[in-house]
């Protein structure tokens, strides 16, 4: 009754394995919930901070803050949807390819959004825009630590 081990072979890397997914259930669902919760908190924070800045500093800093939050959120929501609804879960190469593809699309989408905002929206308040954008990144760093994720322990 020993542990079943899987040898590191090219076949495993290529086609995956027929082992039953013992850990797929609870752990993965919990992590998916964590990602959804982080994104929900970020959406709420973007909206509330933008509203607060709009009230305190005026319309231009307010919509700049909203745009900064949206530039972060739209590519991340796209990537989260791609990652959480992926189909090829047993094939490691296909999974990695999908993850890289979603990352490339996320980066491209972020660049397009930055370019669009800087060319089409005028005037833009850079401190509000980058302030909210960086705040969203910091929340994404801090959330796994606050949630006490297994891989960061």
């Amino acid at each position: 009754m020993g542990l079943r081990t899987v040898k590191f072979t090219a076949r495993n890397a290529r086609v995956g394995s027929n082992l039953k997914p013992q850990f797929r259930g609870k752990t993965t669902r919990r992590q998916a919930r964590l990602i959804q919760r982080i994104l929900a908190v970020q959406v709420l924070l973007t909206l509330s901070i933008s509203a607060a800045i709009a009230v305190l500093k005026g319309a231009v800093p307010g919509y700049s803050a909203l745009l900064g939050g949206l530039i972060y959120l739209l590519p991340n929501l796209y990537q989260a949807k791609q990652v959480l609804t992926a189909r090829h879960s047993d094939n490691v190469r296909q999974t990695l390819r999908d993850l890289y593809k979603s990352e490339i699309w996320k980066m491209a989408l972020t660049m397009v959004l930055f370019g669009t905002v800087f060319t089409l929206v005028e005037p833009v308040e850079p401190f509000s825009l980058f302030g909210v954008f960086i705040l969203m990144q910091v929340i994404a760093w801090a959330a796994p630590v606050i949630q006490n994720q297994q891989f960061l322990r």
Binding site: V6, P21, Q31, I35, A80, S89, D90, L99
Partner: peptide
């Protein structure tokens, strides 16, 4: 993932967070 294919779904979400 090649060593423990049963962990791929968990690794995928962790990969997303670390990325």
């Amino acid at each position: 993932g090649a060593r423990q294919p049963e962990l791929i779904p968990m690794l995928r979400t962790q990969f997303f967070i670390v990325m």
